[in-house]
Design a protein around this nucleic acid. Structure first.
Lengths: 349, 349
DNA sequence: TTGTAAGCGTTATCAG
DNA sequence: CTGATAACGCTTACAA
């Protein structure tokens, strides 16, 4: 038991080779003779050396093999949404060709302790969403000269992004609702800014989250005057809160609700049922995302299925490309409309 | 635009101080005069220096400020369970005093690319659960001399763990069911091994996942001969699959089902209702975890409420303690029994 | 309070 | 295929 951990030099000495040779045995960057290799490996074993110190290697190489994933909210909250988790899976896949791991970073604005966005040893960063806070994160990361990819947000010139056809897709759903004959429609949106206030959105409100703005624009293309209520986050509970407000007054109930996420839609459906309304007979509801919402059965949500995993994978691949000095390519992904059992013609009055 | 990024030495030179002084200005480890500080900061600004290179700093310090969180399944699957999500939040909290970020590591056994458990620059690791695969991960990490904390699994001597009183808690629920008069009980368990097979568990089956084994033991203390069916994962859908199998034969229906998670219980309830059974009048169901199950209303599950966030925080704090050379303390957390509306006396036959 | 000096453990380069 | 050499960029005793 030596007091200090063995280094590659110790191993080299023990094996009777030079440190560089030992290094090469571990990295495999250069062919080595079987004899040398086995001697080095044996020496390593004998000394309890388990491989190069990643910190030293990353300093020397200038790469840490870590990609930061930046969220602008509590991790718990972010992961509550299945879209996020699928995306993370895709991301893990996408960067795996690069052999990188994912570092969870939360930019809460008031990061007191390290490592934050300022100091984390990351080779690249993926920003999720594009709220105002994210724009700050972007500045920080770019200031450090670290390649960035933005998912679902426009970060401006030269920054590759992975986008969904949110406007287009939401317009499709709205058209479907309109085609069924609905005229009295209410929209339930994702948060409109970092403060995550819920409530009716004023006509002159500034919507600072791109996804929200885009989906809203798509719906308003078809229903220009539909009132819209913002939720505080994408969850069933928030959807239910919005739904209760919407269905509160029996005299002024819409015949359809267009929600900006499946979770919100599920909540709206629950609120409708609480209010004694049947879906879709009395009220139609559409979602967005196409995730499996636990507990929604027997309903099948009419929704836009987004390629969440592909989104993550694309972001991961864009990161990989940037780190390999390849042209960082942006990607536009499309959602697929899926008609479920939650939309129908409005009740004939 | 210099061709190379500025280093702290460049900044020091520009500011007319020594590198060590500049270093100290950034780290704040030693008081510096206002004059020096402002000169250094100005120089940094001028050179576009955004702070010490974390790779170099971590080599020098011997710390990366990163804690690895090791999962043995797809991240998406892991995060589907609210318990995991809450735990991650607690974990983030727990390590924050240390100022560490979390590195997501998936040990899928066939990790071809780096950095894996073998090479990630982590100061410590938290293993979630304790399946056979996890035991391998444990070996790897220990081999590297990295401190480990295991959550919900017994890793043997000297490895701090954060445990739940699974046996005890599940026994409490079983006793409650027994006290209500049930004799004909079926158990629905979490996965019993890495292969995640679903189906009836044979008497001689080896259960290789600690949580599953413990909760099963607790239930069997009260109902030694109750048949048990394993689910493939903890989800409502899996619970429903198990439930359908259990309620398939009208002639052989149990009067109570003890499920090892709330999600499974919710699925069982759904299956029961599909089969025309009322809960709790015709069949009682208990869960485990005490999470909010979306879509279960109006039922309130009879369950064991586990302190998921506390579990994560405790793990984080244990890690922090180990890194500060304090005594790594294990912690046993307790679940609280909560009686809901899903259990009642069996139907009088 | 500031400077000097000595590594931290690797790996890229290039010569043999 | 192997070895010598020179960084990689920073921090921290310790001395002034």
């Amino acid at each position: 038991m030596s007091t200090r951990r063995a280094t590659i030099s110790d191993v080299a000495r023990e094996a009777g080779v030079s440190p560089s040779t030992a290094s090469v045995v571990f990295s495999g960057k250069t062919p080595t003779s079987a004899d040398v290799r086995s001697r080095v490996l044996a020496a390593a074993q004998a000394l309890g050396y388990t491989g190069p110190d990643p910190r030293a290697a990353s300093l020397r190489r200038g790469r840490s093999g870590i990609v930061g994933v930046v969220f602008d909210q509590h991790l718990g909250t972010a992961f509550l949404d299945p879209v996020t988790t699928h995306m993370m899976d895709g991301l893990a896949d996408g960067v795996s060709r690069l052999g990188a791991a994912l570092l969870l970073l939360r930019d809460d604005g008031v990061t007191v302790s390290e490592p934050s966005l300022h100091t984390a040893p990351i080779d690249a960063a993926v920003l999720i969403g594009c709220s105002p806070r994210m724009r700050e994160s972007l500045e920080i990361v770019r200031g450090r000269g670290i390649p960035v990819v933005v998912v679902e947000g426009d970060a401006g010139e030269g920054i590759p992004r992975v986008l969904l056809d949110n406007v287009e897709a939401q317009r499709t759903a709205a058209r479907h609702v309109a085609a069924l004959g609905h005229r009295d429609v209410v929209l339930v949106t994702l948060p409109i800014d970092t403060s995550r206030h819920r409530g009716w959105i004023a006509d002159d409100a500034r919507i600072r989250v791109d996804v929200t703005a885009d989906r809203l624009a798509g719906a308003r293309d078809v229903f220009p005057h539909a009132p819209a209520m913002a939720a505080a986050t994408s969850s069933i509970d928030e959807g239910a809160i919005a739904g209760r407000a919407i269905f509160a007054d029996p005299g002024r109930r819409p015949t359809a609700v267009i929600a900006q996420s499946d979770l919100l839609a599920a909540g709206v459906i629950r609120a409708a049922e609480e209010a004694g309304l049947r879906v879709p007979e009395d009220v139609s509801v559409t979602g967005f995302d196409g995730v499996v919402v636990d507990g929604l059965a027997p309903h099948v949500l009419t929704t836009l299925v987004q390629p969440a995993t592909a989104k993550g994978r694309a972001a991961g691949e864009a990161v990989a490309a940037m780190l390999e000095d390849a042209a960082p390519s942006s990607l536009d992904l499309s959602c697929t409309f899926r008609e479920g059992t939650t939309t129908a013609a409005p009740p004939s009055t």
